Simulated scan of single mutants.
Amino acid sequence: MDRRTFLTRGALVTVPLVAGCSGQEGEDGGSPAESPTATDRETPTVTETQTPTATETQTPTATETPPQSQSTTATGTPTAGQQAYPDYEWGRLSGVEPDPTTTIRMANTEFHPLIAEVPSGTEVTVTNEDAARHTITVPALDVDETVDSGGSVSFTVQQTGTFDYVCTFHPPQMLGRLVVTAAEQTPTTSTATETPTETATPTPIPDDDGGY
């Protein structure tokens, strides 16, 4: 076998080998198929839910109301007597019912009754049964009288209202109140007078012959 024959046979053997290597390419003769890459998955973010914190409710503390050192009128306004003499024990008047009377007694360094009630236009008499002198001082009525032991004074109140008074000689306990109410009006009764009715008497008519 000469050298040319050997090379030819070698070439025939080489071709199938090349063809076998070409089988690694894609079926369509193209490049090998690329392996799909892993798709990046988005990791869901966790939304933090804020838990509402408990709101502390502050319980209001009870406010202590100091006891009133003086009583007031129904509207809550101190009377003229309380304003003029604020250091007296006006709280003693709280809860006391008025006593209908026209006489106020001074005894044991106190006024009796503590609260007197009279209708307007009534004369009020104040008597002193103590050995010491006292005063009846009513600022709203311009009354300021000194009453000796065994003596008395009188005054009349025409206006209605609440009038606090004191004894200026004996603070802070000797005080009182005068409640003046509207006087009751007596209804007037009118009596109707009946007027008698006159009955007419017929006058006789005379006949022609002069008789009746």
Rank of each mutant, 00 (worst) to 15 (best):
Q50I: 15
Q68E: 08
P67K: 09
E48D: 14
T55Q: 14
G91V: 08
T55N: 12
E48I: 15
T122C: 05
T109R: 15
S94E: 12
T122S: 06
E117F: 06
D130E: 09
Q50M: 14
P67C: 03
T75M: 05
A74D: 05
T79A: 01
T53A: 13
G95W: 05
W90I: 04
T51G: 11
T101L: 02
E56Y: 14
T47Y: 12
S94I: 14
V124C: 00
P113D: 08
Q83W: 08
P52N: 11
P78L: 03
T75G: 07
I115M: 11
R92C: 07
T109I: 15
T47S: 12
H112E: 14
T73P: 05
T109M: 13
A80H: 09
T127K: 11
P119H: 01
N128W: 02
V96I: 03
T49Y: 14
E97Q: 07
H112C: 11
F111H: 10
E56D: 15
T63P: 06
I104G: 00
I104C: 00
M106V: 14
T75D: 11
G81T: 04
T55K: 15
Q82G: 12
V46Y: 11
A116L: 07
D99F: 11
G81C: 04
T75R: 07
M106E: 10
Q68V: 04
W90C: 01
E117P: 07
P60C: 08
T59I: 12
D99W: 08
P86E: 04
Q82I: 12
E56C: 13
E97V: 02
D87N: 11
I115D: 07
R92F: 01
T61E: 09
E89S: 09
T57Y: 12
T103Y: 04
S69V: 06
W90A: 06
A62P: 10
G91Q: 09
N128G: 09
T45A: 14
I115N: 09
V124H: 01
E89G: 02
T57P: 13
P100N: 07
V96W: 00
P60V: 08
V126G: 03
T59A: 12
E64Y: 02
P52H: 10
E89I: 08
P100Y: 03
P66T: 01
P119A: 01
V46W: 11
G95T: 04
I104E: 03
E56R: 15
A116V: 08
T72N: 06
P60S: 05
E89R: 12
P113W: 08
P113E: 05
E89T: 09
V126Q: 01
T49M: 12
T55M: 12
E56M: 13
S71P: 00
V46C: 02
T63W: 03
W90V: 05
Q58D: 13
T79F: 07
P66A: 01
S69H: 06
Y85H: 09
T125R: 06
A107T: 15
T57Q: 13
H112L: 14
W90P: 00
A74P: 03
D87H: 10
Y85W: 05
E110Y: 15
T103I: 08
T79V: 04
T103G: 02
T45E: 13
E123P: 02
E129A: 12
E56N: 15
A74L: 02
P86V: 06
E56P: 15
T75K: 07
T63D: 04
